[in-house]
Design a binder for these strands. Sequence first.
DNA 1: TTGTAAGCGTTATCAC
DNA 2: GTGATAACGCTTACAA
Lengths: 355, 355
Amino acid sequence: MHVQRLEAYMGTSEDYERRHHRKQSTAVTSHDVALAAGVSQATVARTFSSPDLVASETKARVLEAAERLAYIPNAMARTLKSQRSRIVGVVVPSEGEYYQHVLTELTAQLSAAGEQLLLFTFSGTDDIDDVIASVLSYQVDGVMVASSAINVQQIQRIVSSGVPVVSFNQPAATGLSPSVVADNAAGMEKLAEYLVDTGHRSVIFIGGVAAAPTDQERYQSAVRTLSDHDVLCRYFEAGAYTYRAGLNAAAHLIEEPRLPDAVMVAADEIALGVIDGLRAKGISVPGDLSVTGFDGLPQAEWLAYDLTTVSLPITEMVKHTVDLLGPDTPESDEIVVPGTLRKGTTVKTRNDERV
Amino acid sequence: MHVQRLEAYMGTSEDYERRHHRKQSTAVTSHDVALAAGVSQATVARTFSSPDLVASETKARVLEAAERLAYIPNAMARTLKSQRSRIVGVVVPSEGEYYQHVLTELTAQLSAAGEQLLLFTFSGTDDIDDVIASVLSYQVDGVMVASSAINVQQIQRIVSSGVPVVSFNQPAATGLSPSVVADNAAGMEKLAEYLVDTGHRSVIFIGGVAAAPTDQERYQSAVRTLSDHDVLCRYFEAGAYTYRAGLNAAAHLIEEPRLPDAVMVAADEIALGVIDGLRAKGISVPGDLSVTGFDGLPQAEWLAYDLTTVSLPITEMVKHTVDLLGPDTPESDEIVVPGTLRKGTTVKTRNDERV
DNA sequence: TTGTAAGCGTTATCAC
DNA sequence: GTGATAACGCTTACAA
């Protein structure tokens, strides 16, 4: 190696690497562009962060040099200085069609707003505290937490770190942080009334996880509405918000001495499993038994199911979330979004009976 | 945040922050912790980045102070200095069950490897070049691109920036960057042979987007295998990799003067739409017409469909991807992963005929 | 309008 | 083992 001798006239080896675009630290910086364009580093930085402050002729020279060197500003350095990362942290469960759906919408809306999305998922066994520390370490501009597996203390921790948090579908977080929630009670009420109107007199409610606030809101609303019409409604826990849990729940259901008229399921994904489980055992839905869901997943509309459910306006809910994460987040605010009744063909109506 | 010291001549910390238009940043730094623990800032940094170099007694003092102040190291500053962000950029289409599925798996595996995932999605109209610039600006440790909507030049751009790229399911990227692809040809061959074995003599292939390399590989393999057995196979383009596109394709299909024996669909999600579309028109699957898919989505196993398809081992494919993004990425490497034939009940077998 | 220079909060290289 | 002290690449007063 002749490194020492080379350095004498080439500068440090780092300089050498940079000039020759060697692999590893090919990193072109605003400094390099400045050199090439014959301006100061500050001017280069300005043409990218506040172009209005730069004379258009200078700007052109800088942009030309930047283009030529394939310069891309370093977002980490920007973040460090400006305290703004343009990254939103998102904490969601790793499972579940519903969150997949929310995530799709969120990415689209965030990128339209010029924010990126740093994704954190967790499954049952993961330590959510670690996840939170990790999110915060990345200096995110905001955090959206979407799962009731995250508890109030954990949300409190994010809040007290000074980072804007929005909780999504977490009734329990109300008051702590701004939140966007579906109107579970109103939705279930519509559904229950529809069942009563169509002549259903006995109902079993299949929940996902009994401890989840969402589950409780939905169940209690169903019970309340049905009991107003003297219809009893028992609770059965599927154990998870998954298709498979629904399949299992259906297997248990058919062991009942007497089937109810209808099954109200806490979430669409479970409901689809319930339907398939019932049909596999020769029980006709809705012929022998009506089934309803909740959420309004795309799959619920698939013709094989055509589920009667409450459709939540995901786009609108995500829009509110993104707004709340924006520049002036309120200390605390609860946005309750109503769902709409979707009448599919999994509930037996009087018309069906006549047939 | 050395507010305490400044207060003597600057007024309260609130005054200071107001004058400087700072928001209430509770930002606790390693410096604050050092002050509290009576050590130097360097020692604090060390106890977090290389704990072995710190005496255990000192370490304990530092950790106690850090805990008390709720200190979380700033990942952006770490990145700036260490040139390692622990972030992987992921570029995927915003639509499609398949990519959702891949994403779920990827997040899980990356976080197990201590990497975070910065998500970039795009839909048809978005400018992918912008997306790429954005990814690169975040100093990601690697990029996974998963869509054939991204072209060779764009991958080349990432490669030449020096960031490790792995392309996922992009046959066209072979040679440019390491890639992980499904063995489309072998998979379709198995499927086609299964159809021939079960007595199918005429086939229509429904693709998603004809221009997609994946589509072409799958179609060509089907044609090749079928023609070896003197079975003709026409191509029909659904237009997108969606359920809805499948539904539409089915509508076109039934206008054919004569239905084929089987429909081979390029992707499961489309196939589910095709099945529902056919059944809605009173055509029995597999009674009147067999249908196959490709991918092995969870939904394909839902009992309402129980699709005959090729299951791709997503977990394994993602594992390879994560490995390739790891410390020593090869310049270029192609990992071809075989799928397995999943025999569902959407193909009419000889047994069915006997019934 | 542009340049100078002081950080942002770490990591890394030295001495001690 | 620990403490100074440079960077890392940018933003942002302040000066010119």
